[in-house]
């Protein structure tokens, strides 16, 4: 186990390092950052002074080393658009993104798992059809459309919930559903197919023959064994939510990392852009690491070594 963890940590660091290399390379390939500051009055002296301030007067490898060293301490430089440290701007957006991610994941789990199990256990029943229909629509509906529809129904028509913005718990419901809807549908499909496979296995037949209660069979024996695929998906989903909730954030005016990343691209704001990408890489590595560890909990037959 220890070897596994050490190996995964090394892999994770290697991924982060590789990402940093690519991000830095692309940011430099996009042009000289000083271009954003020049005007007719920029002299050669001030151009060079700017270069010294930004460390551009050094060889690329030295520039990279300095940048990566700073990035490791969370210092991504000063945002050209916000005129403050990129770390402060990014830090401000992490919490809203985490909240939205948890909201979406919560909805996806509490709806997708039970419906998936129900659909498998009551195969061919009305519940199964409901589950499969939900899965079909869930994966087909684009988030931007769903979000606007939910706003129209629950905010404008029924006036039950606010349309957008962060706020008290009521503000989480519509963005959470919008974000979690597609994943919920995916969970239904994954849990259903995994459960069907397990429920057909010999040890379940044996348990039934021994007179074990159905509820006990489903939740103790089958469900836990069916968790591997959904769990893998949940890990990837968690990372994806943390890095890719642009649409939901935009529709619900949620000040998260996804929108910040897109805005930084529009603004050619390299410090923010590189900082956000590095954080996204970190999220992915950590999420996958946690999923790997959870495998052994869910299925002791999996030996991580």
């Amino acid at each position: 186990m220890r070897t596994f963890i050490i190996r995964r940590v090394i892999y994770g660091l290697a991924v982060v390092w590789l990402v940093s290399f690519i991000v830095f390379g692309l940011s430099r390939a996009a042009g000289d950052p000083r271009d954003l500051y020049i005007d007719e009055y920029t002299t050669t002296e001030s151009w060079e002074a700017m270069g010294r301030e930004m460390g551009l007067d050094k060889p690329l490898i030295v520039q990279y080393t300095l940048w990566f060293g700073n990035a490791l301490t969370g210092d991504f430089g000063r945002s050209m658009y916000h005129r403050t440290s990129a770390r402060a701007v990014i830090g401000e957006r992490i919490r809203p993104t985490l909240e939205l991610t948890l909201g979406g994941l919560f909805f996806a789990v509490i709806t997708g798992f039970p419906l998936g199990v129900l659909s498998a256990v009551r195969r061919g029943s009305v519940w199964d059809y409901i589950g499969r229909t939900f899965a079909l629509y869930g994966q087909a509906l684009p988030a931007f459309w769903l979000g606007v529809m939910l706003i129209l129904i629950f905010s404008v028509q029924l006036k039950w919930l606010p349309t957008s913005q962060r706020g008290d718990w009521t503000h989480f419901i519509l963005p959470g559903i919008t974000l979690g809807w597609g994943a919920s549908a995916a969970f239904v499909r994954l849990v259903r197919s995994s459960m069907l496979e397990v429920l057909d296995s010999e040890f379940v037949v044996l348990a039934r023959a021994k007179g074990v209660a159905t509820r006990w069979i489903v939740w103790k024996h089958a469900f836990r064994n069916a968790l591997i695929a959904p769990m893998t998906f949940a890990g990837v989903l968690l990372a994806a939510y943390l890095t890719g909730t642009v649409v939901t954030e935009t529709v619900f005016a949620w000040p998260g990392l996804g929108r910040l990343a897109v805005q930084s691209v529009f603004n050619n704001d390299f410090p923010i852009m590189t900082g956000v990408v590095m954080i996204f890489a970190g999220f992915f590595v950590i999420a996958n690491f946690i999923v790997d560890l959870l495998y052994s909990w869910a299925d002791p037959r999996i030996r991580l070594e």
Binding site: A88, E92, R95, P96, G103, L105, D168, H171
Partner: peptide, 22 residues
């Protein structure tokens, strides 16, 4: 697990007005 998830979510949600500001 479900309760924990809910608690984390609820904590985040309910304390959102203490956000760090620019």
């Amino acid at each position: 697990i479900a309760f924990g998830l809910f608690a984390v979510f609820a904590f985040s949600a309910c304390s959102s007005d203490e956000e760090t500001t620019t």
